[in-house]
Nucleic acid binder design. Structure first.
Length: 108
DNA sequence: AAAATGACGCATA
DNA sequence: CTATGCGCCATTT
């Protein structure tokens, strides 16, 4: 298993505060853009079953829940976000500008 | 080895 | 708003 290569990605995702979200690209940029945003998604897909990783807090740059299909239930991602106070409407985070959490800015 | 494939991002039209 | 196209890079065909 080569998932250890994504340890840096997992670590950032684990640091996302409850009630906040970030994007694949933001994580990629924080890691130095060396890994493209697609790899961040791939890394999460590789371990979506890992309950230690709040993958539901990672969406695309528009705040759309593009990864909802990869959860055990189609509405699990949205349910988890809403249970944290995040408003989701039509697969998109309404208050994205408020709850967006950029590791490059807020993590040091 | 070469081409295809994404939980993406950005620029353009 | 939708629709392409290109760059990105590990994994899979």
């Amino acid at each position: 298993l080569k998932e250890n290569n994504f340890e840096a990605i997992y670590e950032v995702v684990r640091l996302i505060p409850k009630g906040r979200v970030t994007s694949y690209g933001a994580i990629a940029r924080y890691l130095g853009s060396k890994r493209g945003a697609r790899l961040v998604g791939w890394a999460l897909n590789s371990s979506f079953n890992n309950s230690e990783i709040p993958a539901h807090r990672v969406v695309n740059r528009s705040g759309v829940l593009t990864g909802k299909a990869h959860f055990s239930e189609l509405n699990e991602m949205q349910n988890r976000l809403e249970s944290e106070g995040i408003i989701v409407e039509n697969n998109k985070i309404v208050n994205f500008g408020i709850c967006f959490w950029d590791p490059s800015n807020e993590l040091l």
